[in-house]
Amino acid sequence: MQRRPFLRVLGGAAVLAATPALTGCSSALPAEALAAWQPPAPVPPGGDVRRWLLAHAILAPHSHNLQSWLVDLHTPGEIWLYCDHTRLLPETDPHSRQILMSQGTFLELLHLAALQQGLRAEVELFPHGVFDPRTPPAPPHTHHATARVRLVPDASVRPDPLFAQIFRRHTNRSAYEQRAPAPPAVQTIVAACTAPGLRVDFALPGNARLPEHRAIARDAWRVELVTPRTMLESLKVLRVGPREIAAHRDGLSVNEPQPRLLAALGLFDRSRAPGPDDMAVTQQVQDFNAKIEATPAFFAMVTETNDRATQVRAGRAYARAQLAATAHGLSMHPLQQALQEYPEQAPHHAAIHALLGAGGGRGTVQMWARLGYAPPVGPAPRRGVQAHVMA
């Protein structure tokens, strides 16, 4: 979600030139942070298929890459999914709408993996009551239960072609080519995320609304950067350098030489938000604006309602949309800033809803994303199956 605060300082190039060990280092992420992206071994006879399913589900997209998924495997044939209340985003996502969508992306990949094993995943949402981030779970539970999933053998289920895209799907924040998504790709995305009470919207090249999409995206992005508490929330989950990335395997990874050097020298201060005119902000704004101007298309999902179950289902639909886009060589990059519900974003929240014919009782925009062709990028770190299994 394009929250990588690279601190740029004058003379940085000279500092780097004087540090050969860092200028020659690789920006590739450490192998242990990406180990989960290797397909799991086949399930042995008599083995527990649930861990095989989870090895796919944990590759789902998640807001800020926080991976708030906890699972309880104590009941044979079931997977209980919980939302880790220590991995919420109270500043940028005060109502946890994005977190609930991220729970939905997990459930959809779990469903696709279950089909691959001849299983039907029967999902019961909120078995302990509707999720409320302001209210702690009732004892004896320490986290909010999102779903109870029963795995039922069913000879009638068939694998879904989208399953093949799970290990290829990556959120791509780079610059996109200025060419329109192919019509068959658009049609496939629409078909993949069709659901009751949900509609999709595209702003494709030639669409008169494209300038408005771009303007809202630019303005909302800058608001998040210059609002200290929202910027600090991103800085809190920033992982700089291979040691931090390997230790956490979550959050927003930065492994380029310059920020690594600045962090090592104590010049990359993540405890204080930069000022609106600091180079750390102005450079990011320029970089982001250039990418937005070159973005050929935008994708959005609007739901009629906005209850918790709808948010989870919207997450499932987005997971399918992104997998379908991946199958056609397209990339997606969520632009959630304007959809966030804190006061400073209110004008942009209203603007994107009005642009998409939502708001004011006409529905809620659950997802808004850049869409286009781009050079492939690598995966984001994952914590591995065992990190999500409750004792």
Score class of each variant (00 low, 15 high):
Val190Leu: 08
Phe268Gln: 07
Pro181Lys: 04
Pro276Met: 11
Ala263His: 14
Glu177His: 13
Arg209Leu: 12
Gly241Cys: 08
Ala215Thr: 02
Pro205Ile: 09
Arg199Leu: 08
Gln284Val: 02
Ala215Tyr: 01
Gly266Asp: 10
Leu262Thr: 05
His248Phe: 14
Asp287Phe: 04
Asp278Tyr: 03
Arg229Ala: 12
Ala175Arg: 08
Gly206Met: 15
Val226Lys: 01
Cys193Met: 10
Lys291Gln: 11
Val254Pro: 02
Val240Ile: 15
Ala203Asn: 03
Gly251Ala: 05
Ala180Glu: 09
Glu212His: 09
Val186Pro: 02
Asn255Arg: 04
Ala247Phe: 12
Asp250Gln: 07
Phe202Thr: 05
Asp219Leu: 02
Gln283His: 12
Ile292Glu: 02
Arg214Phe: 00
His213Thr: 00
Arg218Val: 02
Thr194Phe: 02
His213Asn: 04
Phe268Thr: 03
Leu252Gln: 09
Gly266Asn: 08
Lys291Met: 11
Pro257Tyr: 07
Asn207Ser: 14
Asp278Pro: 01
Pro183Trp: 02
Leu198His: 07
Glu233Phe: 08
Val223Thr: 14
Arg199Asp: 09
His248Trp: 13
Pro228Gln: 13
Arg229Pro: 06
Arg179Asn: 09
Arg173Ser: 13
Thr194Pro: 00
Ala290Leu: 06
Arg209Asp: 15
Phe288Val: 11
Leu225Lys: 09
Leu198Ser: 01
Pro211Thr: 05
Val237His: 04
Pro181Ser: 10
Ala208Val: 14
Gly197Thr: 05
Val254Gly: 02
Asp219Asn: 02
Asn255Gln: 09
Val200Thr: 13
His248Gln: 12
Asp278Thr: 03
Val254Ala: 06
Glu244Phe: 11
Leu204Ser: 02
Ile292His: 06
Thr194Arg: 15
Arg243Ser: 12
Ser271Leu: 10
Glu244Ile: 06
Asp250Asn: 14
Val190Met: 06
Thr282Lys: 00
Ala175Glu: 08
Ala247Gln: 10
Lys291Val: 03
Pro183Tyr: 00
Cys193Trp: 00
Val223His: 06
Pro257Trp: 11
Glu244Val: 09
Ala264Val: 03
Ala264Lys: 13
Ala264Phe: 05
Thr227Phe: 12
Val200Asn: 06
Leu235Thr: 07
Met231Gly: 08
Glu224Lys: 03
His213Phe: 05
Arg214Ile: 00
Val186Met: 05
Arg199His: 11
Val223Met: 10
Ala290Gly: 10
Glu177Ser: 10
Thr188Ser: 15
Pro228Tyr: 10
Val200Ala: 13
Thr194Tyr: 02
Arg243Ile: 12
Pro274Tyr: 12
Asn255Tyr: 11
His248Cys: 07
Arg243Trp: 14
Pro205Cys: 12
